[in-house]
Measured scan of single mutants.
Amino acid sequence: NRRVIAMPSVRKYAREKGVDIRLVQGTGKNGRVLKEDIDAFLAGGAKP
């Protein structure tokens, strides 16, 4: 169970979209999950 780095607003956005943030690959600094990562996940998967 890895620790997810994300701003509270991004965590809320993921919850609102029904996304398990632990499944999203973060592309920000130090692997931080960004809102754009949530959108990319919803569009068909995590960014490479």
Rank of each mutant, 00 (worst) to 15 (best):
G44M: 11
I5G: 10
R15H: 15
M7I: 01
K29V: 02
A43N: 12
G31Q: 13
L42W: 10
Y13N: 02
L34M: 12
I21W: 11
Y13W: 04
G18E: 15
Q25F: 07
M7D: 15
A40Q: 01
I5L: 07
A46C: 06
A43T: 11
D20P: 11
Y13I: 06
L23T: 12
A6P: 11
A40C: 10
I21H: 10
S9H: 09
D39L: 04
G44L: 13
G45S: 12
G45Y: 05
P8S: 11
N30L: 13
G31W: 04
L42R: 07
D37N: 05
D37V: 00
V33S: 01
D20S: 06
Q25L: 11
M7F: 06
K17L: 13
F41E: 10
V24Y: 00
G28R: 03
G26K: 02
L34R: 07
F41Q: 13
G26I: 02
V4Q: 08
A43E: 09
G45N: 08
V24M: 02
G26A: 10
K35P: 14
R2V: 01
A43G: 14
A40V: 07
I5Q: 01
K17T: 08
R2H: 09
G18W: 07
I5E: 14
S9Y: 13
D39I: 02
P48M: 04
V33M: 07
A46Y: 06
K47L: 06
I38S: 01
G26W: 04
K12Y: 02
I21G: 02
S9M: 15
N30I: 01
E16A: 04
D39S: 05
Y13A: 05
P8E: 15
V19L: 09
P8Q: 05
L42I: 10
P48W: 05
D37K: 00
K35N: 02
E36V: 08
S9K: 04
D37L: 00
N1K: 06
G31D: 14
V4L: 09
V4T: 07
V10F: 01
R3S: 05
A6R: 05
I38W: 00
S9A: 14
G44N: 15
Y13T: 04
L23E: 14
A43L: 12
G31N: 02
K47T: 08
N30V: 09
V24K: 00
K17N: 12
T27A: 09
R22G: 14
A14V: 00
R32F: 03
D37H: 00
G18Y: 05
V10R: 01
G44T: 11
L23M: 04
K12P: 02
R2M: 10
D39H: 03
V19M: 05
T27Y: 00
K29N: 07
K17S: 10
K17C: 08
N1R: 04
V33E: 01
V10W: 01
K47R: 03
P8K: 11
E16K: 02
M7H: 11
N1M: 11
A46Q: 09
K12S: 13
A40K: 13
T27H: 04
Y13G: 02
Y13H: 12
G26Y: 00
D20I: 13
R15Q: 15
K29W: 02
S9D: 09
G26E: 02
S9Q: 04
A40M: 10
Q25K: 09
G45T: 12
R32W: 15
V10L: 10
A14E: 02
V24C: 08
V19I: 12
G31T: 08
G26L: 01
R11D: 06
K35D: 03
G28D: 04
N1W: 00
V10C: 09
K17M: 05
I5D: 14
I38Y: 01
P8C: 06
R2Y: 15
K29G: 03
I38Q: 01
P8A: 14
D39W: 03
A46M: 15
R11G: 10
R3V: 12
E36L: 06
R3L: 09
G28M: 02
K35F: 09
R32G: 11
K47E: 11
R15E: 13
R22M: 14
R15W: 08
R11Q: 14
V10N: 03
Q25Y: 08
G18Q: 11
I21P: 11
R22L: 14
I21A: 07
P8G: 14
G26D: 01
G26S: 09
G31Y: 15
A40E: 06
V4F: 14
A43C: 07
T27K: 05
G28E: 03
K47V: 11
V33Q: 03
I21C: 03
G28N: 01
G31L: 04
M7N: 05
S9L: 13
V19A: 12
R15V: 12
I5P: 07
K35A: 09
R22Q: 14
V33K: 12
R11P: 05
G44H: 13
G26N: 02
I21V: 09
G31P: 03
V4D: 15
A46R: 09
M7C: 04
L34C: 04
V24P: 02
A6S: 13
V19W: 00
A46I: 15
K47P: 06
V19D: 00
